[in-house]
Design a protein around this nucleic acid. Sequence first.
DNA 1: AGATTGACGTATA
DNA 2: TTATACGCCAATC
Length: 103
Amino acid sequence: MKSDSSAIRQAIRDVVARIPQGCVCSYGDIARLAGYPRHARLVGRCLDDTLPWYRVINHQGRISPRGWNGNDELQRVLLEAEGVEFDETGRIDCRRFGWQNTG
DNA sequence: AGATTGACGTATA
DNA sequence: TTATACGCCAATC
């Protein structure tokens, strides 16, 4: 096993790709599930079009601005298409749509 | 090789 | 809810 940071990105991508449909997950949770806590920021960097990046949100249940303008709106549309609902303030109920939640 | 800055976040006040 | 502090990575000088 290589101790290279590439392994971290690889693990992150693997976790993000495993997020079930209709669910969302925060950067910190993904990093933790990948086995690398505290690497939340690295998760956001590693998101690609090959991954369900739109299922990834911040810990506040909100959509974070990406490098490309318009993604914020696109993310909401994609999530709504999967059954995820947004609050009036644009927040998602982690207890209903959060991944691996206890209810 | 070493130090500094920037970043798609999280936690706390 | 907003603002501040913190920690980790990657790129740059």
